[in-house]
């Protein structure tokens, strides 16, 4: 019988046990990133700007030149990187607390300037690393360690829909929201990520991909339950799809 290579892990994806909890989606997003970088032949010229939170350790898994940014500042750091090293492929990896709370000013202005960078935004509706506190994306009614009775909009405001906000900015060329909770969505996520990469590669502008992700530990759920919550609760409020593809629209 002839052996066929049916699956090969991306070379820049570290062959190492992960620190992520069982059922966490970060690992899937990492692998997707690594695969897309290789597919587009961008890995060798990539600079990853890591943020603060569970995703901070991306440099231990996606093995490209990497830089750590202070909490929320990754888009500003990436601006400095891209402006001083314009031939590099620059992507940012941020969670929802990092991007949509403490770093809201930095993401808005980097996007509005149309920086030639790609932002990978992982939204799991909770502060994971610090132990499950309310995030800017926590759903109405969702219980967290700082909203023990569930998020109340009259006190805590509403979950921020960042992909929609990004899509309204003139400087943004590509904005999409994707999920990795099933194979169908995973394929669409890959397509969106490849497109966002292409936007930067062609020098067209800012690309933004929001990933809906699970956090079984802080949601107090099993991995299967958490995966189901993505489809059942998150997607209805955070609808999936390409919200903006300025270049494609023009063409």
């Amino acid at each position: 019988m002839q052996e066929v290579l049916a699956y090969k892990s991306p070379e820049i994806l570290a062959d190492t046990p992960t620190h992520f909890c069982p059922g966490c989606h970060h690992g899937i997003v990492h692998k997707l990133l690594a695969a897309c970088l290789e597919e587009k032949e961008l890995a060798e010229k990539s600079i990853c700007v890591a943020a603060i939170g569970c995703g901070a350790f991306i440099y231990n898994y996606v093995l490209v030149d990497s830089l750590e940014a202070p909490h929320g500042r990754a888009p500003a750091v990436a601006t400095g990187v891209k402006r001083s090293s314009p031939d590099s492929f620059v992507f940012v990896y941020q969670g929802d607390g990092d991007l949509a709370s403490i770093g809201l000013a930095e993401i808005m202005h980097a996007a509005n300037r149309g920086e030639r960078i790609t932002v990978v935004y992982v939204n799991n509706t909770v502060y994971g690393m610090t132990g499950g506190q309310m995030a800017p994306t926590t759903m109405v009614g969702q219980k967290t360690t700082t909203t023990p009775g569930g998020r109340q909009p009259e006190l805590d405001g509403f979950p921020l829909q960042m992909a929609e906000i990004m899509s309204r900015l003139r400087g943004v060329h590509f904005a999409a929201r994707v999920a990795v909770n099933n194979i169908k969505n995973l394929k669409k996520a890959k397509k969106a990520l490849l497109r966002a990469f292409e936007v930067q590669k062609l020098g067209m502008g800012f690309g933004f991909v929001e990933f809906l992700a699970s956090c079984p530990t802080n949601w107090r759920m099993t991995p299967v339950e958490a995966n189901e919550r993505v489809a059942g609760e998150m997607i209805p409020y955070f609808p999936l799809g390409v919200l903006k593809d300025a270049v494609a629209e023009e063409g």
Binding site: L67, T79, G80, S84, S88, E106
Partner: peptide
């Protein structure tokens, strides 16, 4: 943001 841009440029 300006200081963090400096950090980014410094890393390059």
């Amino acid at each position: 943001a300006a200081a963090n841009m400096l950090l980014g440029a410094g890393a390059c």
